[in-house]
């Protein structure tokens, strides 16, 4: 994962609450199995405009190069599809600022070098105004601040371990395997004694021995 430290960019904005993950990434594109290149399908329906209509904000200069997106309340609610984050990241977005987020979407952001920031409604409104004025906004992760033109500094919360993962571009799985292998093994041994019924083993799966085999040509 690419480390994230500081973002300096104008911000695109969406004046809409409850932008769910179906709006961000419609389900029919979930059939695509590559992580890359999904940006073309982000906000697919919103980006469909007739000739002469104003293009969707992420398609019109200067916002088409924005690395920050300012949204409303309940951004990314609904489906767990990580494609929603992959698609936004593919468009070059690295920070999403909203009043609240769907929980799974929020967690998915951190796995992909995208920083989601929660702000209260009033503070968010000031960031939104700055976005509307097409001003450059500085999002600094080490100091957990957003700096607006005119030197207003806004601080925000982020979990310590998630911050570290973003800053270092950590491979979380490698860290767990390196540091916690013994703990996991010890837990499993304890659970085998304490609650053996939770540990499905090959013997249990014998009831599935009659499963038919499907033949597909990929």
């Amino acid at each position: 994962m690419k480390p994230l430290d500081k973002i300096q960019s104008i911000a695109a904005y969406l004046d809409e609450d409850a932008v769910d993950t179906d709006i961000i990434f419609p389900a029919r594109f979930l059939l695509l199995m590559d992580k890359k290149g999904l940006g073309g399908h982000a906000f697919h329906e919103r980006r469909r405009v007739k000739k002469g209509e104003t293009p969707f904000i992420l398609d019109r200069p200067p916002f088409d190069t924005a690395e920050i997106l300012v949204a409303g309340k309940d951004f990314g609610t609904g489906s767990s599809r990580e494609q929603a984050v992959w698609a936004l990241a593919d468009l070059g977005l690295r920070c999403i600022i909203a009043e609240t987020f769907g929980e799974i979407f929020y967690a998915n952001c951190f796995k992909n070098g995208v920083l989601p920031i929660r702000l209260d409604a009033d503070t968010l409104a000031r960031v939104r105004q700055a976005a509307g004025r097409e001003e450059e906004i500085v999002v600094d992760l080490p100091s957990q601040t957003i700096v607006l033109t005119g030197d207003e500094t806004i601080s925000y919360d982020v979990d310590a371990y998630r911050k570290e993962a973003l800053l270092l571009g950590l491979d979380e799985i490698a860290v767990i395997l390196r540091d916690s292998g013994k703990d996991i093994k010890a837990f499993e041994e304890g659970q085998s004694r304490r609650a053996p019924w939770l540990r499905l083993g090959p013997d249990k799966w014998k009831v599935f021995d009659d499963l038919e085999k499907e033949q597909f040509i990929e």
């Binding site: 967690a107 796995k111 799985i173 499993e188």
Partner: peptide, 20 residues
């Protein structure tokens, strides 16, 4: 609970998730 694909990968490899 529902998780994203990255967390699915973590469960495949480690059988654990880091959570609050």
């Amino acid at each position: 609970f529902g998780i994203g694909a990255s967390e699915c990968e973590c469960v495949f490899a480690t059988q654990v998730l880091r959570q609050s």
